[in-house]
């Protein structure tokens, strides 16, 4: 393995595959029947250990995949590649903020 790029590439693929299933499950949980979206149901769902684990991994995968994808788009340009370190740093910070904010919301239940 050579540096971050191959790891980013393989994780982009793995998280992508995982999310096809996780997001389908998330969609069916919340939208097959909209009673699941009532405040009480949403809070009790987020309070259960199983859903917490499920959402934690979904959050982890989705933030990595989304921001790594954005990074790939920006690095495809001359301007982005010239400032590669800045792009990597800024995107990592935004991704971490999004992840920790999501994790914080999850921890409130």
């Amino acid at each position: 393995m050579r540096g971050f790029e191959p790891i980013a590439w393989i994780f982009q693929a793995l998280t992508g595959i995982a999310m096809v299933f996780l997001i389908t499950a998330h969609f069916l949980t919340t939208h097959a029947n909209h009673e699941m979206l009532s405040y009480e149901n949403a809070v009790s769902r987020l309070g259960s250990f199983e859903y917490k684990v499920f959402y934690f991994f979904l959050l982890l995968f989705v933030t990595f995949h989304a921001f790594n994808g954005l990074r790939a788009i920006i690095l495809d340009t001359d301007g982005g590649m010239r400032r590669k370190k800045v792009v990597n740093a800024v995107i990592s910070v935004i991704a971490l903020v999004a992840f920790f904010y999501g994790a914080f919301l999850l921890s409130r239940f």
């Binding site: 405040y39 949403a42 809070v43 987020l46 989705v62 933030t63 989304a66 921001f67 994808g69 954005l70 788009i73 999004a98 904010y101 999501g102 919301l105 409130r108 239940f109």
Partner: peptide, 17 residues
Amino acid sequence: VVLLLYLCLHLVYLTSL
């Protein structure tokens, strides 16, 4: 990019919980 923007909106939306 649309889904990335939606992710950000979704996280903000969930604050309302």
